[in-house]
Design a protein around this nucleic acid. Sequence first.
DNA 1: CGGTTTTGACCGGCGC
DNA 2: GCGCCGGTCAAAACCG
Length: 201
Amino acid sequence: MDNNYSMLFPCPPSSSSTSSYQISISNNNNDNSNQQHGFITGLNNNNNGQSSNNSAFLDLKFHEQQLKRSEEDQEEEEERINVSDHHQLGGGSSSSSNKKKGEKKIRKPRYAFQTRSQVDILDDGYRWRKYGQKAVKNNKFPRSYYRCTHQGCNVKKQVQRLTKDEGVVVTTYEGVHTHPIEKTTDNFEHILSQMQIYTPF
DNA sequence: CGGTTTTGACCGGCGC
DNA sequence: GCGCCGGTCAAAACCG
């Protein structure tokens, strides 16, 4: 029951460079127009050159441009649970109290997951708290930023709906959950039981 | 009443 | 250096 679905997002950051996965969700849809086809794409910063022919992947190419910063990325960014410090930033750069000693901001690899769905909020079993929403350029739908509410788990995701066809929701995950799924979503397990994962090698 | 969403401002990187 | 843009913060509003 509590099997975590981290198999959906393999490739830990120190592992080999995973180019691109494709997941095809095929459920026998009783709904009339709610078929689901998902493409999960590993946005790794090692290989920021090869892109598939997916149209949604083209919309996500700016992520790779954002991600081509540092070469070695490990996830050590657990310090922002302690908010007891006084590093305020809203208000205008009073003091320059950085977070750590020479610890630059490192980004984890992200995984984009394209789903054809009617709703924006895809219940994946975790508890998310929305912390931002921004308007996207060349897109009439805003992008929502979520963060996992589990204490100590700083997994983030962002949900965006394509303006090309508004039936497609792109969910981009960042980080790996270090805890089991909190909610018992039988519906999601039902979807997962009918998933077919295709690996390109 | 506590957790979550909303929303405007701020920050940092990047291109010009 | 300045402006743009994606990402984040945080106070207020909202909601069960």
